[in-house]
Design a protein around this nucleic acid. Structure first.
Lengths: 201, 201
DNA sequence: ATTTATAGTGAGTATAAACTCAATGAGTGA
DNA sequence: TCACTCATTGAGTTTATACTCACTATAAAT
C-alpha cells in the first residue's frame, strides 16, 4: 500500500497547527483569532476546521497533550528527589521549561473551558503527590514544621504562581521570572517551613 | 434654577449603569456583552453609550471607583492595627466584603486594559504599606523571622490569591472562600513567619 | 403657551471572528 | 494513462457584539 504520503501529510499539518497554536497562545494568550494561528502555521484558515471541528476542540487537544507532557516530566524528575529543597528545585526547573504557556494557563484558566481545569489538575496532583511524600518524611524527622501538608503545598504554589501571574511587574518582557527569582523563592520558602534548630534539646 | 431634575436623573442613570456593571461583572466576568448590562440595569442599550464613549471607559471608570473605595477601606482599618495578626485579619475582612469582584479582577487582570493594573496597584500598595510598617516592628522585636519584607508580603498575598483564584475548587458556588478558610490561612501563615520561642536566651 | 434643550430609546450599522463548502490539484490504484 | 479519493484552499456565510443616530418625551426657559 502506498497510501502513505497523504496520511503523513495530514498528520504533519495537524501537528503543525497544534504546535503553532501552542506558540501563539503562549505569546498572545488564548483569545487570539484562529486566522492568526492559520497564518502563522502557514496553512489556510479552513484547514484548521478540516482537522478540528471547532477551535475549542483544538484547544482541548492541545491542553491534553500539554498536561500529559508536563505531568510526565514532573514525575520523572521528582522521583529521584530526597529532600524538599531538591524537589522544589526540580519543580522550578520544569516550570521554567514551560513557563510562558504555563503562565497563560494559570492566568486565563477561569475563562477557559472546563477541560482546562483537568489539565491543571493533572499537573498539580503530580507535584502534590511528590511534595507530600517528601515533606511528610521531613516533618517526621523534625526538619520541617508540623503544619497541614496541603497548607504547606498551597503556600508554595501560591507564592510561585503569584510571581508567574505578575510577570509584567516582576521582570522584563522576555526574561524568565522563574530564572530570575528561583533562588529567592526557594530560600524564602525553606526558611519559612524549616524548624529552627533548638540549641538545647 | 430648576435645572435639577434632569441632572439628577442623568446622574442616577449613570450610577445605575455602574452599579449594575459591577454586579454583572462580579457574577459573570468582565466579558459579558454590554446588552446584558443594559437589560439588567433597566435602561436601553444606547443609554450606556450616552454615558460612556466606549464600554472600556465604563470599565475604567468602574475600576477607578473600586480602587479608591477599597483602598480607603483598607487604609482606615489598617491604621488602628498593632500586630501582624490583626492587620491580616483586617485584610481578610475587607477582601471578604469585596470578594466576588476582587476575585474576578485578579483572575482576569491580564486580559483587562492597562488601567486595571493601576487599580490593582492602588489596592496592593495600601496593604503593602501597612504590612511593612507592622512587620518591620515585629522583626525588630524578634517575634517574626528576619526575612525580606517583600517576600513575606508576597507569600501572604500569593497564598490568599491562590484561594481566591481557585474558588471553584475550594468552596461551593456561592460560599465565601475567605469566610471558610480565613482562620486556616491566618494560622498557617503566622506559624510560618513567627520565630519560635527560644527557651534559653 | 410656546419654544428650546437634553435624557433616553432601539432599530440599524459596522466589524470581527468562527465556521462552511464548492472548487482545486496532487497522490493512489487500475 | 485515466478515473478516483482526499487534504487543502479561501471566498463567502453566520453570528455576536460594540457602537450610531434620527427620533421621542419631557423638563426648563421664554
Amino acid at each position: 500500500m502506498k497510501v502513505n504520503t497523504r496520511k503523513i501529510q495530514k498528520l504533519n499539518t495537524r501537528k503543525k497547527i497544534i504546535e503553532t497554536a501552542y506558540k501563539v497562545f503562549s505569546e498572545k494568550g488564548f483569545s487570539v483569532p484562529s486566522s492568526i494561528i492559520a497564518k502563522e502555521a502557514g496553512v489556510s484558515h479552513g484547514s484548521i476546521f478540516a482537522h478540528f471541528p471547532t477551535i475549542n476542540d483544538l484547544l482541548v487537544s492541545l491542553l491534553s497533550d500539554f498536561g500529559d507532557k508536563m505531568g510526565a516530566r514532573l514525575h520523572v524528575l521528582a522521583k529521584k528527589t530526597d529532600s524538599v529543597e531538591n524537589l522544589l528545585k526540580e519543580h522550578l526547573k520544569v516550570l521554567k521549561e514551560y513557563e510562558t504557556f504555563y503562565s497563560r494557563l494559570i492566568s486565563e484558566i477561569n475563562i477557559l473551558p472546563d477541560e482546562a481545569k483537568n489539565t491543571f489538575a493533572i499537573i498539580q496532583s503530580t507535584v502534590a503527590f511528590h511534595f507530600a511524600s517528601v515533606i511528610e518524611c521531613e516533618i517526621e524527622k523534625g526538619t520541617v514544621k508540623k503544619l497541614p501538608i496541603h497548607m504547606l503545598f498551597n503556600t508554595w504554589l501560591g507564592l510561585v504562581h503569584y510571581y508567574l501571574l505578575n510577570k509584567d511587574f516582576f521582570s522584563e518582557s522576555n526574561e524568565s521570572v522563574i530564572e530570575r527569582y528561583s533562588s529567592e523563592l526557594l530560600s524564602t520558602y525553606l526558611n519559612l517551613i524549616k524548624n529552627e534548630r533548638r540549641v538545647y534539646e
